[in-house]
Simulated assay, not measured.
Amino acid sequence: MSETLPITEARAKFGSLVRRASNARERITITDHGQPAAVLINPQELADLEDALALAQYRARQSAGTATAVSQADVRARLGLERG
């Protein structure tokens, strides 16, 4: 499920929006002057997306013959996807 809200409305509902993103794994898009400006998502969903990106980029390099065997942590660090 997804919802889009202008920044002024999101500001007034921020706490409940964060809880919805966290607990219901909802994506909440916040707009500024009608244009998407930010998206609230569950932290685990972000980690899953980063892992999928890292794997896809590694497989692309592997297909091109430029990939070498490295740990997942090293791949994430090289791609700038370190978890804080």
Rank of each mutant, 00 (worst) to 15 (best):
L55S: 08
R27N: 08
N23G: 08
R11S: 15
G15V: 09
S16G: 10
Q44E: 15
T31L: 05
A60Y: 11
A38I: 10
T8M: 12
L17C: 03
L53A: 14
S22M: 14
R25C: 14
A56V: 12
V75N: 07
Y58P: 01
I30D: 08
T8W: 11
M1S: 13
R61D: 15
I7K: 12
T66G: 09
E45K: 13
H33Y: 07
S63P: 09
T4W: 01
A54I: 01
E45W: 14
A52V: 07
R76G: 03
A37T: 00
E82M: 07
L40T: 06
A47D: 08
E50G: 03
L46H: 08
D32M: 06
A21Q: 02
A10E: 01
P6Y: 03
A10H: 01
A24Y: 10
R59I: 11
T8F: 07
A54F: 02
P43E: 09
V18Y: 03
A24L: 15
M1T: 10
R76I: 00
L40F: 07
A38C: 06
G65C: 01
A38S: 11
A38L: 13
E50P: 02
A24H: 12
V39Q: 14
Q62C: 05
G34N: 04
F14R: 10
N42M: 10
P36G: 11
R59T: 11
Q35L: 06
L49I: 14
D48L: 09
